[in-house]
């Protein structure tokens, strides 16, 4: 028989299960977003040179790498701000802990930087190219098919590793039933790809590319909706602790923000808008991609906070 009342004298800070704050949510979002940019630009690089050499953003240009560099650096800054023992941060890089997703993540982040920097160096923005002649010489290598395709492959690999890891980070922490689902990894990966596609969609100057990205994003959003459904069904039909955790999103305190902002505003609305755009019924705007980005960041916030509120209960 489980107790009807349970009282504990443990009152140390964090015993309420809120060790992680906005920093981790922001970090997970920016990590997934950068992963999306890496995979997309990698795919575009392998496909061929950019359409007509038009200026500005296009998928395989350095633009996405520059944005990715900024995003992942901001994400790492957020992660660093969250550390309580900051002077010891170097300890991450004197060991490799094979069972710790966070350790994998620390090393994956080191892999991401050279890929992004090579992407920028091989196709530097005009302003930079004019000022640094060495860069212009380096950029000639970009015309080599093998270099281009190799970089594309490295970019896809780094992106997938980064995207999968941001999802596994949470599901590897056994104590939180809301996170103990193998679907969290794929969900975060697809969400990262989707936010990356949404951003590239807004930034691309090529109408044809925008059209293709809108179609791709619709597919990703549909997959994401299916993964969310499977994730919740899986939890709700599992043990009592997992079913209780699912209730946080199905009637509990996180229900409104999850269904209205993450699912409604962040997935269903942009899917509808982009479906109409792709069909040629309405003119393309930035509304749908902006909604996807908002949905992506709120998804991380909801899962980081609701996850910590879920626990194995003694009642």
């Amino acid at each position: 028989m489980s107790p009807s009342e349970f009282v504990s004298t443990s009152h140390h800070p964090l015993a309420d299960g809120h060790a992680w704050g906005w920093e981790i949510a922001v970090y997970l979002f920016l990590g997934g977003f950068t992963a999306g940019l890496l995979v997309l630009s990698g795919l575009a690089r392998r496909r061929g040179p950019r359409a007509t050499g038009e200026p500005g953003f296009a998928l395989a240009s350095s633009g996405l790498s520059i944005v990715g560099l900024g995003a992942i650096s901001l994400g790492m800054l957020a992660l660093f701000l969250d550390l309580a023992h900051k002077p010891f941060v170097w300890r991450l890089y004197v060991t490799m802990e094979p069972r710790s997703p966070m350790s994998w993540g620390a090393w994956i982040l080191l892999l991401v930087y050279p890929v992004l920097l090579t992407g920028i160096a091989l196709d530097p923005p005009r302003a930079l190219r004019d000022r640094v002649p060495a860069l212009a010489r380096l950029a000639r290598y970009a015309e080599d098919e093998r270099v281009r395709r190799g970089l594309g492959l490295a970019s896809i690999a780094a992106g997938l590793a980064l995207g999968v890891y941001t999802g596994i980070l949470l599901s590897a922490l056994g104590a939180r039933p809301l996170w103990s689902s193998g679907l969290l990894g794929p969900l975060f990966l697809v969400s990262g790809l989707s936010t990356g596609a949404a951003f590239a969609h807004m930034a691309s100057p090529l109408a044809e590319e925008r059209h293709r990205l809108a179609r791709l994003d619709n597919l990703l959003i549909a997959v994401e909706l299916a993964l969310i459904a499977l994730y919740l069904i899986g939890l709700a039909s599992s043990t009592e602790a997992h079913a209780e955790a699912a209730k946080l999103l199905l009637g509990g305190p996180y229900t409104a923000v999850f269904w209205v902002v993450v699912v409604g505003v962040g997935l269903v609305a942009p899917l509808a808008i982009q479906a109409l755009t792709v069909a040629g019924r309405i003119a393309p705007t930035h509304v749908a991609p902006v909604l996807v980005l908002i949905g992506g960041i709120v998804l991380r916030f909801v899962l980081v906070f609701a996850g910590q509120a879920s626990h194995w209960s003694r009642l």
């Binding site: 443990s10 140390h12 800070p13 964090l14 015993a15 299960g17 060790a19 992680w20 969250d82 550390l83 309580a84 023992h85 900051k86 010891f88 941060v89 300890r91 991450l92 710790s100 966070m102 922490l173 056994g174 104590a175 939180r176 910590q308 626990h311 194995w312």
Partner: peptide, 23 residues
Amino acid sequence: CIGCKACVVSCPYDARYIHPDGY
């Protein structure tokens, strides 16, 4: 210890805390 709090979050018993000195 870098004070990342992963262990605090991972313990089903809430046995851990972050010491005011950071670890």
